[in-house]
């Protein structure tokens, strides 16, 4: 996969301290404050959050741009807000 340079995120949210379903809820509420096309950076845990949060975001019409491991058991997810 070509390593495309992504623009810096417009906002960030950390969901490593919460569990399902508050994980996705926090991401949704963070996206509410953005405009379509803006980018949110999400810090999330391995396991259930990495499996479910990106899928739920796609289901709601957002675009998952990148998921990368931070090397400490957490991941970083970049998501572009879709049209409302």
């Amino acid at each position: 996969m070509p390593n495309k340079t992504l623009p810096p995120p417009d906002s960030t949210v950390d969901i490593t301290e919460v569990v399902c379903p508050v994980t996705f809820v926090k991401v949704k509420v963070a996206l509410d404050d953005l405009e379509p096309g803006q980018i949110l950076s999400v810090r999330l845990n391995d396991g259930e959050p990495v499996e479910n949060v990106p899928r739920s975001l796609k289901d709601e019409g957002h675009r998952v741009l990148k998921l990368s491991a931070n090397g400490d058991g957490t991941y970083n997810l970049l998501v572009e807000k879709g049209q409302e």
């Binding site: 919460v18 379903p21 508050v22 809820v25 926090k26 949704k28 509420v29 509410d32």
Partner: peptide, 23 residues
Amino acid sequence: SFTDEQLERYSRNIILKEVGGKG
């Protein structure tokens, strides 16, 4: 903005696409 307690209390509402944080 929501408190952490509200995000948890209303999580099943907010998680619905039709409701969300705005609803």
